[in-house]
């Protein structure tokens, strides 16, 4: 039921703040309160070492969330990112024995692109459901990895371990975190200021309208999955560099954290909501909560409960009012 604005002049009035904006502010306030309370109670919290730790730990979820954000905005979902993380990590760590590290990384990243391409083609061209396609991909890739190598693979390259994995810019900012930070404006620009990005956003809201406006909807949808695969592979490479080791079991259930971050940031499964900034906020919130709970020595089982509750609160806050 639509309610038409009657001939009431309301030029002077600012439109009322949207529910999403209110929820964002509430969330921001919540995070700040959390930081203040923790800082007061735990001296370790605001130390450089702990902050560096938080920054490092949010890189994987952060990069996965970037890709997940693009896919969710297109109206889809990608459950295969956790498996791609392991795949790319294994390749980057394993191949550096036999080739220059740059080439190993390039191959690892292109594997993410290929996985995304397969997902995208199956979803956009074969018209299969994203949930099912990426669920199958998640299982298939994971299985293949265990066949390929049951044992951990150790990275040996100095650049890979020291500079990429453990390096710090100006002695403070971890390189991996800097890379993640650099990706945020790139994705923001892509989604908001390129034809592809605007098309992907619109596809998530009504693909048929977009098709009839002359956009190649299949290609753009595929592109969303390719981007997601790429960022998952990047996350895998950086994780292998930080840990110095990669094994086929890495990254299990990581897709869920990424989805959670996007949803906390206002994303709506099925498309039509959420901003890059919101997603970034979601990543930070999740990382802080993890760290705080660790500092208070909360058992990991309780941590999961807390995270679950926070996701539900996020969704409840953004719930559309009953019409």
């Amino acid at each position: 039921m639509t309610e038409q604005t009657l001939s009431q002049p309301q030029k002077e009035q600012r439109p009322p703040m949207s529910r999403a904006a209110k929820a964002n502010i509430l969330f921001g306030v919540g995070v700040v309160v959390l930081i203040i309370v923790t800082a007061l109670m735990q001296e370790v919290f605001l130390t450089e070492r702990n902050m560096v730790n938080v920054a490092r730990q949010m890189v994987t979820t952060g990069l996965l969330s970037i890709g997940m954000y693009v896919v969710i905005r297109s109206g889809g979902i990608d459950l295969s990112v956790g498996s791609t993380v392991a795949f790319a990590g294994l390749l980057a760590a394993g191949l550096q024995e036999t080739m220059p590290v740059g080439a190993a990384i390039a191959i690892a990243l292109s594997v993410g692109v290929v996985v995304g391409l397969i997902n995208g083609v199956l979803i956009a061209y074969m018209r299969l459901q994203p949930f099912i396609v990426t669920l199958a991909m998640m299982g298939a890739v994971r299985g293949a990895l265990f066949i390929y190598s049951e044992t951990p693979t150790y990275a040996t390259d100095k650049f890979f371990l020291k500079t990429l994995g453990a390096g710090k810019i100006f002695g403070v900012v971890p390189v991996t975190f800097a890379i993640f930070l650099a990706c945020i404006p790139v994705v923001w620009f892509f989604m908001n200021h390129t034809r592809s990005g605007r098309s992907i956003m619109a596809i998530g809201m009504n693909p048929e309208t977009v098709r009839l406006a002359g956009v190649n909807v299949r290609a753009q949808t595929t592109l969303a999955y390719v981007i997601c695969g790429f960022f998952a592979a990047l996350a895998g490479v950086l994780l292998a560099a930080r840990l110095g080791i990669s094994q086929p079991s890495v990254g299990v259930a990581y897709e869920l954290d990424a989805i959670a971050a996007v949803v906390i940031g206002g994303g709506i499964l099925g498309g039509g909501g959420g901003t890059v900034g919101g997603m970034f906020g979601g990543v930070i919130a999740l990382a802080l909560i993890d760290n705080v709970l660790n500092l208070f020595n909360v058992q990991s089982y309780y941590q999961q409960i807390v995270k679950g509750v926070i996701i539900l609160i996020a969704v409840l806050l953004r719930r559309k009012p009953d019409s």
């Binding site: 390129t194 605007r198 956003m201 809201m205 309208t209 977009v210 406006a213 956009v215 039509g272």
Partner: peptide, 24 residues
């Protein structure tokens, strides 16, 4: 796209006019 705004809906068929390469 009912959940999108006026700008994105009305601008959907003319993006190539105001783009340089892929950048809008």
């Amino acid at each position: 796209a009912l959940d999108a705004d006026v700008l994105d809906n009305a601008g959907l068929a003319s993006m190539s006019r105001i783009s340089r390469g892929p950048v809008l």
